[in-house]
């Protein structure tokens, strides 16, 4: 049962196509697991459709007539059979494990698997950057916390969106399980603790490098002192 969802504004931006790539990815992955949000997103696209259908028309030049479209579709090959089939979920045959929550994410990880590595961050924490989806505006990665791992308390200089893929964690605002989505803004300060029963793996999207560099030293500080 998914209890934590992206905001209505975020779902609208997703549906309009205006989120940055990493945020698009994390919302899309949540939608695959959450029929409630998927319905909201479809409703939002219906709004786009209604606006399009009732929009003011712009006169087309003589370059765009029905006849020239007809010529184009004559020339276009018949669509390949594969184009008309729903894609099958791909099984991840590498160390990244099977993320059954989201076939889309599986596909993404599969495609870039040769370049993906889990890297040690601190005892109990590993991360795997997804550079293909990262940009100067946002950083996309997988984060793996050992069972019961307690992150040092931290705040964020920008936003942080988290989707739980495996296991669970809790912070001051609640308990987050598989499929749950959390958005944390600069104003929030939290201390997530991984559930004790199994490793917790999350997809996270955070804004900008400066915020990341500020976060990393904080995360490492207690361990550096050892």
């Amino acid at each position: 049962m998914i209890r934590h969802h992206p905001s209505a504004e975020m779902l609208m931006s997703y549906s309009a196509g205006t989120l940055d790539t990493g945020q698009t990815l994390i919302v899309a992955a949540h939608l695959e697991a959450c029929p409630t949000c998927a319905t909201h997103a479809l409703n939002a696209r219906s709004i786009g459709g209604a606006l399009l259908e009732n929009a003011l028309p712009t006169t087309l030049s003589e370059n765009v007539t029905f006849e020239c479209i007809s010529d184009k579709i004559e020339q276009a090959e018949r669509p390949a059979a594969s184009e008309l089939e729903s894609p099958q979920p791909i099984k991840l045959a590498n160390s990244l494990e099977a993320f059954t929550l989201s076939p889309l994410l599986q596909q993404v990880l599969q495609q870039s698997s040769s370049r993906l590595r889990w890297r040690f961050v601190a005892p109990g924490v590993r991360q795997c950057a997804l550079p293909l989806f990262s940009s100067p505006a946002e950083r996309v990665r997988l984060l793996a916390l050992e069972p019961g791992f307690k992150t040092p308390e931290h705040s964020h200089h920008g936003f942080e969106h988290t989707l739980v893929l495996k296991g669970s964690y809790s912070d001051e605002t609640g308990n987050y399980c598989k499929g749950d989505f959390q958005s944390v803004t600069a104003a929030d300060c939290h201390q997530p603790v991984a559930g004790g029963e199994e490793e917790c793996i999350c997809l996270t999207v955070t804004s900008g490098a400066p915020r990341f560099t500020a976060f990393l030293p904080r995360l490492l500080r207690p361990f550096m002192d050892l």
Partner: peptide, 20 residues
């Protein structure tokens, strides 16, 4: 033209599908 066979009128209005 190419993808119209995938359109399901019970899932979405034509305008929603074209908007997408």
């Amino acid at each position: 033209w190419r993808k119209a066979a995938l359109y399901d009128p019970q899932k979405a209005a034509a305008s929603t599908w074209i908007y997408t």
